[in-house]
Amino acid sequence: MEEVQVKEHINQIISGDTREYSILVEQYKGMVYSICFKIIGNQELAEEAAQDTFVKAFKSLNKFRGNSKFSTWLYQIAYFTSINAARKGKKESVDLQEVYLSENKNELETDERKVLLHQAINQLKPEEKAIITLYYLKELSLEEVAVVARLSLSNVKVKVHRIKKKLGSILENMLNEEIKELKYE
């Protein structure tokens, strides 16, 4: 959907035609949910966060000035909503993630590196997980990531570098633990 069309829909919604909002929800729900799910790591909580994102966006629709793309503005709301949701439901989320991983063990065993990486990502703080997720999402450019996370470009790069370093050491620890376990077996 072109930005001009999006603005037309927004104007109609602001002038009272609430039903027009469903068009925007339909258009962006996939990406918003994807961001929420990747940050939170739990289907139920992510769907709730995605719903909250759209409700919050609706409430502040008259504050949207159009300085950035509507999608970027929406992803920014999704980003911060997800971080908050991840903070609140961190324990539950991690537990469910573990259940999810164990349920799909056979499928994931084919690529152990991926499993380890997922586990390592889940050990990051919600803010760290959020920024690394946005950074590696194919759909977002580096400039968009900076706008969504309310950071400068250089700040994004520095943070990503630090998180990658942290991930590296988490992975190293995990591998050492596995080696130890293998030695004792």
């Binding site: 909002y21 929800v25 339909e26 729900k29 769907e47 995605a50 719903q51 759209f54 590696y136 194919k138």
Partner: peptide
């Protein structure tokens, strides 16, 4: 990381009445 973050999983499917739920709240 790129692969892990961009891979689609079955859990990434939204419930069919998602838009309806949002519009109800709105």
């Amino acid at each position: 990381l790129q692969e892990a973050i961009n891979e689609e999983s079955s859990s990434q499917e939204l419930s069919s009445n998602f838009t309806f739920k949002v519009m109800d709240k709105v």
